[in-house]
């Protein structure tokens, strides 16, 4: 099971803060994104943005990063703190 979190504008667009999902072994962040769109077709326009950032276990990663069972994955817009 993978825990998926969404933040900021993306959280509001999806109207979802957190969910759990089962993924086939060796799935990447891209694979997770495809799975989420399959489960929630209306999320396509928001998850398709090439500006989104991803973290796995609270470290920024690339879309090709392979996810392990039990990982915490987050999707969010570019950061704007400071």
């Amino acid at each position: 099971m993978i825990t998926v979190l969404f933040f900021a504008q993306l959280r509001e667009q999806l109207q979802c803060e957190k969910l759990s999902v089962e993924l086939p072994a060796d799935s990447s962040v891209t694979g997770l994104r495809e799975k989420l769109i399959e489960l929630h077709p209306t999320w396509l326009e928001f998850l398709a943005s090439d500006k989104l950032l991803f973290s796995v276990n609270q470290t920024l990663v690339k879309a090709s990063h392979v996810i392990q069972n039990g990982d915490e994955v987050a999707f969010f817009p570019p950061v704007t703190g400071g």
Binding site: A8, V79, T80, G81
Partner: peptide, 13 residues
């Protein structure tokens, strides 16, 4: 500050 602004997960509304 430069890295905080581009890497730390904060968002302003």
């Amino acid at each position: 500050m430069d890295y905080l602004k581009t890497r730390a997960p904060f968002w302003k509304k």
